[in-house]
Design a protein around this nucleic acid. Structure first.
Lengths: 145, 145
DNA sequence: TTACTTGCAAAACGTTTGCAAGTGC
DNA sequence: GCACTTGCAAACGTTTTGCAAGTAA
C-alpha cells in the first residue's frame, strides 16, 4: 500500500498513535478499492483475515479516516451509514439502481460549475455536495418495462 | 385542509382504513408547511394538540405517507431520519448550512435538464434524485472567515 | 364480522461509551 | 511513564414488533 502515509501523517499531527488495529483498518479500507462499505462489513472482513480488531475500534477509527480525508460518508441506505474510499480518487456522484443495487459513478464538470453558480446566486459558500440519482440501470429498466 | 383526499384515496386503494390517528398525523404533516420534521417532533406536536396518537402509530404511518407520495425522506441529520411534505409542492434541492443549520431550498431547471442528459449518457432511467450542498450561509461564512 | 389498527412495552438495531488493562512513543 | 488505545459489555437513541384489545367498513 502506498498511500498509508497520509493517515500516518494525520495521526502524528494530532498527537495520536499508529496502532496495529488502525493499520489493519486502513489496509482493509484501501482493499475496498472504492466499493461502498459499512462498519459491520469492514469488521467482518477484518475478522476473516484474522485481524483482531473489535467493532468498537472500527467505529472509533472511521471518524479519524474521515477527518484525514481518506474516506467519506455516502448516501445512507436503510438505517445505517455507508462509506467509500476517496483518497487519491476524483470527486464523483452516484446513480443507484433500485432494481439490482448497482452503483454507477459519474463526474460532470458542467454539473460542478452549475452548482458553483447556484451557490453564488444564493450567497452560499458550498463546501461539499452529494448528488444521488435513483432509478433503474439499463438491464433492470428492461425488466420493469 | 384540501389535499387529504390523496391519502384517503391511497388507503382505499390498498384496502386500508382511515382512522382518527391517521387523520391527525396527516393534518399535522400538512401543518409543517414544508418545514423538515422528524417522527419525534411530529409525535410531540400531536400530543400538544391533545391528539392521542402513539409514537408507534407515527412510525407506522410515515411509510404510508411516503408511498402515497405525500412526504419524502430528506437528507439524514445525525442518526435519525428527517422528512418533508412534498405533496402539492415543486421538486427542489437543498443547501444546508453547517454553521447554523439553516436550509435553503432551490430549484434549477438547468440542473434538472443536465441530470436527464447524464442519465441518458449512462443508459440510466432516473426516477428521483437528491442533491444536497453543504457549506456556509452568508451570515455564517462571514463568522468563519 | 372480520380484518385492519391501535397502544403499550419489550425488542431490535446501529452506534457510542465507561472502564480497566494494555501499549506506542 | 504517561497519555492514548484497546476490548468488552453496558448504555444509548431511534425505530420496529408481538400482543391483546379496539374499531372501521
Amino acid at each position: 500500500m502506498k498511500d498509508d502515509g497520509a493517515f500516518r501523517e494525520f495521526l502524528k499531527q494530532k498527537g495520536l498513535r499508529l496502532t496495529p488495529e488502525r493499520e489493519a483498518i486502513l489496509r482493509e479500507v484501501f482493499d475496498t478499492r472504492g466499493e461502498h462499505f459499512d462498519p459491520e462489513e469492514l469488521h467482518i472482513s477484518l475478522r476473516q483475515k484474522d485481524a483482531n480488531v473489535s467493532r468498537a475500534s472500527v467505529y472509533r477509527t472511521i471518524p479519524l479516516l474521515i477527518e484525514a480525508g481518506i474516506i467519506e460518508e455516502v448516501e445512507r441506505v436503510d438505517k445505517h451509514s455507508h462509506y467509500e474510499l476517496t483518497w487519491g480518487r476524483e470527486h464523483h456522484d452516484h446513480m443507484l439502481c433500485l432494481g439490482c443495487g448497482k452503483v454507477i459513478e459519474f463526474l460532470s464538470q458542467e454539473m460542478e460549475e452549475l452548482q458553483d453558480r447556484l451557490c453564488a446566486e444564493h450567497g452560499f459558500s458550498g463546501q461539499t455536495h452529494t448528488l444521488e440519482i435513483k432509478g433503474y440501470c439499463s438491464k433492470c429498466a428492461r425488466k420493469v418495462a
